[in-house]
């Protein structure tokens, strides 16, 4: 078990290293001078030179990379190219905080709903209810977030006025205000997530239901409810853990669009801005953080899966 975790941690570090190298080399693709892109065509050569010196852009690429990596590990995430040249780290951490809040609320809504729907659909496989759930989740799962988001805004914010259409976060919100602000973004994200997890839960449960041990349990004379809860779900929900971890990765990515619809101050919106402004330090920092979060979620899921699955635990 410890060997397993050590191994996964090593893999995580490799992942982060490769990702950072990948992102870094992508930014090296930028044609000509980054400084010119940022400062504009009219910038004097002196200003360009000063900019390059300030950000270390005049160094050879490999040295730039190792320097950036060293600083990043030490906690110095560099300064933004954007106006104000603010330090990147506090901005990213604050945005990350907001994004995690939204992700947490979304998971709290969608996981129970999705598991419930998935299990029901599997138990009633082939009936109209299963068909309905299948078609509904299928429809929802591929819809871009801006499509669902716009519909939700029109119905619940502009139409019914239950929620805010834009999500401004201020300190000292009451619970009610939080709900009004977080409601729509979380709901929008939940739609896709529910679709996704429901489908996989249904497939997993259905697969387990057809296994011989379920027949054994039924032919023990156990009531159906106990057969389902004690025997089937224990096995069927194991893969769901992995599914949830994967969806966390999606959540963070999906946030990009959702945050931009609702003007939510999370990492996604910041990332879009960084891309538009060619703000490389910000871009790199956000990417690293997101990949780290995703990798940690996967690691946790793998460890949980191993702990809950005796077939792996006692190999």
């Amino acid at each position: 078990m410890i060997a397993f975790i050590v191994r996964r941690l090593l893999l995580l570090i490799v992942t982060l290293l490769v990702t950072s190298a990948l992102i870094f080399s992508l930014t090296q693709l930028l044609p000509g001078d980054v400084a010119r892109l940022i400062l504009g065509r009219e910038a004097t050569p002196e200003r360009v030179a000063a900019f390059n010196r300030q950000y270390g852009l005049d160094l050879p690429p490999l040295e730039q990379y190792t320097r950036w990596l060293g600083n990043f590990i030490r906690g110095d995430w560099g300064r933004s190219f954007a106006a104000g040249n603010a330090a990147v780290r506090p901005i990213v951490l604050e945005r990350l905080n907001n994004s995690l809040l939204l992700a947490g609320v979304t998971l709290a809504i969608s996981v129970p709903v999705a598991i419930f729907l998935g299990v029901i659909a599997a138990l009633r496989a082939g009936t109209w209810l299963d068909g309905l759930i299948s078609v509904a989740t299928l429809s929802v799962v591929g819809l871009p977030e801006f499509v669902t988001g716009l519909v939700l805004i029109n119905v619940f914010a502009l139409g019914l006025g239950w929620f805010e259409a834009t999500a401004l976060i201020r300190p000292g919100y009451t619970l009610g205000q939080w709900v009004r602000v977080l409601g729509l973004p979380a709901l929008t994200a939940s739609f896709v997530l529910i679709g996704y997890i429901t489908r996989l839960t249904r497939a997993g449960t259905l697969e387990e239901l057809n296994k011989p041990y379920v027949r054994t349990a039924i032919l023990k004379g156990l009531p159906r409810r106990i057969v389902i809860v004690r025997h089937v779900l224990r096995n069927a929900l194991l893969p769901t853990i992995t599914v949830i971890a994967i969806s966390i990765g999606w959540l963070i990515g999906g946030m990009v669009v959702i945050e931009s619809i609702y003007n939510y101050p999370g990492v996604g919106g910041e990332l879009v801005r960084a891309v538009e402004q060619k703000n490389l330090p910000m871009l790199q920092a956000i990417t690293m953080i997101v990949v780290l979060a995703f990798a940690l979620a996967n690691l946790t899921a793998d460890v949980l899966y191993t702990l809950l699955n005796p077939r792996i635990r006692f190999r």
Binding site: K211, P212, Y213, R215, T216, A217, L219, R230, H231, R234, N235, L238, L308, N309, P310, R311
Partner: peptide, 14 residues
Amino acid sequence: LVPQNPLEALNPTM
């Protein structure tokens, strides 16, 4: 009932 394949007939996680 005692079925054919005992490994499959027993619940793997119990």
